[in-house]
Structures are given as C-alpha cells and as structure tokens.
Amino acid sequence: MTDSHDHDHGFAHPVSVKLLLSVFFSLVFLTVLTIVLNDLPLGSADIVIAMMIATLKASLVMLFFMHMFWEKGFNVVAFLSSLFFVSLFIGFTLMDTGSYRDDIDSFPEDKQPAPRVPRTAPGVSSNDVRPMPPATLVEGSISPLAKPNPHVRL
C-alpha cells in the first residue's frame, strides 16, 4: 500500500491498480468458495460460514474499494454505527418472536373447551378472516398479476 501514496495529491489517495485487482480476484475466489461450500453437507453451520464469508467479502470491499482503510475516523465510525443500530433493530425484534404464531386455527365455535395450546399442524390456515385465493390457474389469463384482488384500493 505504500505505492498508493506515491504522489502528493492533496486529499486524494489513489489506490494502486495491483491492489484493486488482487481484491477483486479474492472476492471472486470467495464467491466461488461460498457456492462450493454450500453444496457440502455442513448442517446448520452453513449459514454461519456463508455469513462469515459474506462479511469477509464486505470487509474487503469496504476497506479497499470504498477506501475505508484511508478514511477519516469519523466517517468510518458514522458508517459502522449503522450496523450497530441495525443489530439493535434485529435483536429486539427477534427477542419478541416467542409469542408469534402464524398458523393458529380459528376457535371451534361449537366445540368446547378451547385448546390452551393451539394446534401447530402445518398447512392449517385461519380461514375465517379472509380466504386464501383459490389455488387454481385462471384459464386464459394473460398474467397472474391480473387476477382481481378485491382488497386493492387507493
């Protein structure tokens, strides 16, 4: 990196071509690596590994392509603080997922007593609120997006 400061360019810090190319090839290598690793049976570790590789790639891009390596401390802190707030957002919201169920059945209105623990069988959806659209192809429809949706209103 010494050659990146070879000239006096005032506040410009040109990055050497060699460095740019080597970063690029590392990134391509890591991309291939993550695809290859994905095919291996790694169990639940695969998401961790994939995220670690992604973070490594992101760091390379940030440090050298985005010149963070030479950037003012304040700007670096400002940018990285966003990650802190994103993690707050994700963290607190995920803490609250325990009470969430997306597959509860409606109360059987004519049967007693109510289930204390709701059924968790997959594929059971609440059909009393609004029905799922019928799962059939619309004959001769040009576009699936053109299906009439009664709830669309401006």
């Binding site: 609440s126 997006l145 949706n149 209103r153």
Partner: peptide, 17 residues
C-alpha cells in the same frame, strides 16, 4: 395493501405485531 406480501397481514401468515 397492493399485493398482500404476507409480512404484516395475518390473513397470509404475517404478523401485525
């Protein structure tokens, strides 16, 4: 509202909370 992506809409498995 336009196309019911099911993230917030309980009718499609979303979560209002």
């Amino acid at each position: 509202r336009v196309m019911h992506i099911g993230i917030f809409d309980p009718a499609y498995g979303g979560d209002p909370v």
